[in-house]
Write a protein that binds this DNA or RNA. Structure first.
Lengths: 336, 336
DNA sequence: GTGAAAGCGCTAACAC
DNA sequence: GTGTTAGCGCTTTCAC
């Protein structure tokens, strides 16, 4: 069996308390006993049982990350950076896909709370308002990542979606585009923000917003986007540029265009969002709006850990600014 | 505070023991008390504390997944399917990137064992032989996924890499290619197997293996592959086809070829491995060897859970067969 | 059918 | 400086 704190105590000829104190650097211990205990712990390969100490109200050093769907590489990236930083800080990450389903959200949260995770990072979307409110009320550490709830007192780090939408649109406008389609994902806060940015940019350029150019889809896959992009492209007056809510959707639009024999960027400019690896491997390479993902992940962890450690109870809402990454999929409008 | 088993017991006018029995469906309980207890648990939103029951030797219903690096989409997929199936089975997944670093591997394992995870799924690579052996010796539930250790008694599910390498090479041979380069990842079991399959296919076709056409890289990124592919392509007698150890490396080779103005597939055929989403978005679309990832993930979970539940102590080694997915990146050799 | 008591491995008062 | 004691929330004999 694994040695317990008592085994160490017995070997060292002291009490369990003393050993505990050494482990946690608490109280006064003579250098001599401390050394001895340390040494014995080494010898016996003693590993404190995290469960037991968690039962005494200590941290489990485990946090949960809730994401909608691992299939989108952006979430894999979130996870990557969060886990990376978590390692530095000594936290493990338990990963949960919710499929954007409020019931699954609730189930996961309930289960993970039973397991006494220290807190939750919720990425991109969370539908179950009731559960979220309750979490906040019970002061469970939470950090929202890549979305926020302006009417709820909860820490969040977001990329500035409004600005992102604005920048992407402004870029297309500067290339001479006037009819700009946008394929977004239904029911996402960030989608709405990006649309607002898009609209504002059009407005600033003196262009009226044409609602039919805004397509919201509920199946945020390449195929889903392809299907809807086709409709946009088959319109009589087809858009000369398409702004995708994320790279996946933008690439779906690319596929649809290629299928129709429409040349990118000559006949159609396309811009994505998130600047995932995929941008660099499609042809032409996809222009995109880059959010500082790594920073986003680190800040989310930071906000969460601050709450867990309870040093500082001021919650923050951090907004990180996106940057435009121009590649080959956007070009000056070629009037026929 | 959250209600404990005692709160329920008090409300129901019974002892904690009885409540525990109801929760775990053990012993004899009258239908009447059972009903009553159930109802009260509902009312109080009682959630048993998993930590406490884990301390009594029960399962934590948490397993760890160790992968080398989240940046490769194939690992995101592993995670996706494992987590999906884990949800069905009631397990949470804690995700750990090891960066293929033996020290990190050891640290993670130690930490997670302190946290009493029920078992480990180790994907693709594990360098720390000592730790692995110890785990096996201590009968910690483990399932290897996408690699195996023929000399160790440990459950594993793999795609048949030898066959995969064989099929890919055979495909290229059938297209008339004779000088086939291969870019593989250093120090991976599956890499070695794929090379064996490659060599066997060449042998069967009566072609001598040319060692300089086999490039093993230690930086398994697009950029890393690009760099090494350039060398292959700059040879006097350059290969007419390249087989990538995985899609990432194959795409790196594609990039290098494009950079050199080499037309794929007319002047160079390329085939990848894993059949990730990326295959469908590069141009030309990448032929690849598809492993049944979802099945791989599910089987790994199955093997692990079987050990955890201890019903069946026979360990298995399962090999799933790959399939060739032919797309546009491979074509008949065009003799100049 | 049900409950009392002990204990999983640890920590936190509070003595000494 | 160090030890005694109690208890976190649960499960498990074993007795009734």
């Amino acid at each position: 069996m694994k040695p317990t704190i008592y085994d160490i105590a017995r070997e060292a000829g002291v009490s369990a308390t003393t050993v505990s104190k050494v482990i946690n650097n608490k109280g006064r211990i003579s250098e001599k006993t401390r050394k001895k205990i340390m040494q014995i712990m080494e010898e016996l390969h003693y590993q404190p049982n995290v469960l037991a100490s968690a039962m005494k109200g200590k941290s489990t050093y485990t946090i949960a990350l809730l994401i909608p769907d691992m299939a989108n590489p952006i979430y894999a990236q979130y996870l990557k950076y969060i886990e990376e930083y978590g390692q530095e800080l000594g936290f493990n990450i338990v990963m949960c896909s919710t499929g954007s389903d409020p019931d699954k959200e609730a189930k996961h949260i309930a289960l993970l709370r039973q397991k006494r995770v220290d807190g939750f990072i919720i990425a991109s979307i969370f539908k179950n308002e009731t559960v979220l409110k309750q979490l906040i009320q019970e002061k469970v550490p939470i950090a929202l990542m890549a979305f926020e709830r302006s009417e709820l007192p909860v820490a969040s780090v977001t990329g500035d979606d409004y600005l992102g939408g604005y920048l992407a649109t402004e870029h297309l406008l500067s290339l001479g585009h006037r009819r700009i389609g946008i394929i977004t994902e239904e029911e996402t806060i960030s989608g709405k923000e990006r649309i607002k940015g898009y609209e504002k940019a059009l407005l600033n350029a003196g262009i009226e917003v044409e609602p039919s150019l805004i397509v919201a889809i509920n199946d945020p896959t390449i195929e889903g986007a392809e299907k809807h992009a086709r409709k946009l492209l088959d319109r009589e007056q087809r858009p000369t540029a398409i702004f995708g809510y994320n790279d996946v959707l933008a690439i779906g639009a690319m596929q649809a265009a290629k299928e129709r024999g429409i040349i990118i960027p000559d006949e159609l400019s396309i811009i994505g969002f998130d600047n995932t690896v995929m941008c660099k491997i499609v042809e032409p390479r996809l222009s995109s709006v880059a959010m500082p993902i790594q920073e986003l992940g680190r800040k989310a962890m930071e906000l969460l850990v601050r709450q867990i450690e309870g040093n500082d109870n001021t919650k923050q809402r951090i907004s990180l600014l996106p940057e435009l990454v121009i590649r080959q999929s956007t070009a000056i409008l070629n009037e026929k």
